[in-house]
């Protein structure tokens, strides 16, 4: 299956990309983040992030499905 990822703020800098499509097996968003974290050296832990799937805040045990839009949301700082 294929998912769409977008990266913002510090995650975008650490990944060196603003978006990518990933081919992967079905898994939880928490497992996916842990893999990407060790692969790309992300410094933020899950505790510091919120998870958005298809533009809804959801929990880390959410299973990712084909076509999902997944975004790890760093602490916001608008205003």
């Amino acid at each position: 299956m294929t998912i769409q990822l977008y990266y913002f703020a510090i995650l975008q800098d650490q990944r060196g990309l603003s978006e990518e499509q990933l081919e992967l097996e079905s898994q939880t968003a928490g497992d996916l983040y842990d893999k990407l974290k060790s692969l790309h050296g992300f410094t933020l832990s899950q505790d510091a992030l919120r998870l958005s799937v298809n533009q809804q805040f959801v929990g880390w045990d959410t299973v990712i499905h084909d076509g999902d839009e997944v975004v790890f949301i760093p602490p916001v700082s608008g205003g």
Binding site: A9, V71, I73, P74, V76
Partner: peptide, 14 residues
């Protein structure tokens, strides 16, 4: 509005 925007809206500043 401004308080909630700062807390909740996915916007980031560098």
């Amino acid at each position: 509005v401004i308080d909630e925007v700062k807390k909740r809206v996915p916007i980031w500043k560098k």
